[in-house]
Computed example of a mutant assay.
Amino acid sequence: MGSSYMFKLTTLLYALLVLMTASLAHARTYDDVIASKYIEFAVYRDFAPYSFMQEGEPAGIDVELGKYIARELGLEARWLWLTADESVDDDLRNAIWKGSVIDRKKADVMLRVPYDREYSYAQDGYGLPRNDMVVMLAPYHKESWQLVRDLNKTGEVRNLAIFQYQAIGVELDSLPDFFLVGIYQGRLRENVHHYATVFGALKDLNAGKLSAVAGMRSQLEWGLPNRPGNFDIDDDGLESLGRKTWDIGIAIKENYRQLGYAVNDVITAMIENGDMEKIFSQYRVSYHLPSTYELDAE
C-alpha cells in the first residue's frame, strides 16, 4: 500500500491542483458573468485620477465607469488591480488572456486600453498578429499630452526653446521625457527635471521650483485642483511629438465578444446621454469625445 498509495495520492493532488489553476485562469463568457452576478474589471493601481484607493475604497474615473457598467448590467463590480508592466501588450496578457504569473487570475474587462486600429492589428517580428488574443473596442475618452506653464515665468513664449533657460518637470520614462531631452539636439536636457510621478512635478511647480510640467491632460487637471490664473494648460510646442492624442477604450478576451458588445452598448449610451462627461467632471477632468464620435459629427 505504501509507495503505490502515495503515488496515486500525489497524482490525484496534482490533478486537483491543475483543475483549480485552470478554474482560476478560465476566462468567463457573457452567460458566466451574468450567472455569477458580478463583473471584474482590470484597472491600474495607483493611477489617479483613473483608478486608486481613497480612504480605503476604490476611486477614480475608471472605477466610477466600472460601477456604472455593472449597475446597468445588474451586476456587482469587482476589481483586478493591475501594476503596469513594460508594455501595453504585457498588461493585456496579464489582465485579460493569460493572467499573472502568480495565480493566472484574469479580469472580464480591462479599462483604459489604447483604442487604435493600427495597434490592434499590429504584427510582431514574425509577421504574426501581436494582439490576436484580445479585442479592443468601446472608446470612451480622448487623452492627450499637454503642458502646464507658469506664465509668470514663461511669459508669452509658446514654444519649447524657453526651456533652455527655464526648468520643466516630467514623469520619468514618459513620452514627454524622451521628447524633451532629445529635441533641439539635446539643448533642453539640463533643464528637464525627472519625477517618479507627474504629481511630484506639479508639487514643485506650485512651489515655484519649475516653470512648467508636461504630462497627460487628465493628470495635470486632477493634480492642480486650485489652479491659479497664471497656470495655463495647452499643447503649444508639442507639434512634433509623435502622438499628441489617443483614444481610450476597453479590452476583452477575443472569444468572448458578446460581453464586449454588452459593455459597448452601455458606454455608447453614457456618452450620448452625458453621464460619461459627468463622471469626468466629478474628478475635475475635462472630457473629450473619442475620435470616432468626432468623425461621426462631421
Rank of each mutant, 00 (worst) to 15 (best):
E86Q: 05
Y140L: 00
D296W: 11
A84L: 11
I96N: 07
N131C: 02
L13T: 15
V18Q: 00
D91E: 05
T197H: 03
F178V: 14
E72H: 04
D232G: 12
A297S: 09
S218F: 03
S36L: 09
Y287T: 11
G208L: 07
S286P: 09
R284Y: 10
A251G: 13
A201F: 06
M20I: 14
R149D: 03
D150T: 11
E221H: 12
L75Q: 06
L220T: 13
Y184E: 03
K278Y: 00
I248S: 14
Y287Q: 09
I271S: 13
D173C: 00
Y256I: 13
K67T: 05
G2L: 02
F179T: 01
F231W: 15
N226R: 10
D116A: 06
L19H: 07
R227T: 14
N152E: 09
R28C: 12
A22F: 10
N230L: 00
G60K: 06
R284A: 09
I102E: 12
S144P: 02
Y14N: 01
D296E: 12
D32G: 00
D31E: 12
I168C: 04
G223L: 01
A35G: 05
A161M: 08
G74W: 05
F178A: 02
F178E: 07
Y30H: 13
Y121I: 13
R243M: 15
M110Q: 04
L111Q: 07
A84N: 07
A297K: 14
N226F: 13
D236S: 15
I168R: 00
L19T: 14
A138C: 00
M53Q: 15
E239Y: 06
K153M: 06
L202G: 08
A59V: 14
K244Y: 06
W222S: 08
Y184R: 01
G2N: 02
M1N: 06
I102W: 10
E254A: 15
G127I: 08
Y293S: 04
L17A: 12
Y283G: 15
Y195A: 09
V192Y: 09
L80S: 09
M1H: 11
K253Y: 12
S286V: 15
V170N: 03
A70M: 01
L111V: 10
S286Y: 09
A84G: 03
I267S: 06
A251Q: 13
Q282L: 14
T292Y: 04
E55P: 01
P290I: 13
Y30I: 03
H288W: 08
V33I: 15
Q164R: 14
N230H: 15
I34K: 10
